[in-house]
């Protein structure tokens, strides 16, 4: 998938969980990615984060470390 599309999708997820209460938003983003993103997609995300994670929501970057 194109990096732009991946970033868009991941940031959408972060935007939702940021709006939820509690202080475990990153964990919940990570849980959502584990539950619904196929390993290839999570791998692509992790690689992208390793290369700097440009344009990614900070919550996604934090979540990706838990994957």
């Amino acid at each position: 998938m194109s990096p732009e599309k991946m970033v868009h999708m991941a940031n959408q997820i972060a935007t939702f969980f940021r709006s939820q209460r509690g202080d475990d938003q990153a964990e919940r983003v990570a849980a959502h990615l584990r539950d619904y993103w196929e390993p290839r997609m999570r791998e692509q995300l992790k690689e992208y984060v390793a290369k700097g994670g440009e344009q990614l929501d900070a919550l996604v970057i934090e979540a990706s470390r838990q994957l």
């Binding site: 998938m1 194109s2 539950d35 619904y36 196929e38 390993p39 290839r40």
Partner: peptide, 18 residues
């Protein structure tokens, strides 16, 4: 135990070659 690809993900993965 891992989730599989959803339809749009299948198409993306196809374009990527996997």
């Amino acid at each position: 135990p891992e989730p599989g690809l959803r339809i749009p993900n299948m198409l993306d993965a196809a374009v990527d070659g996997s």
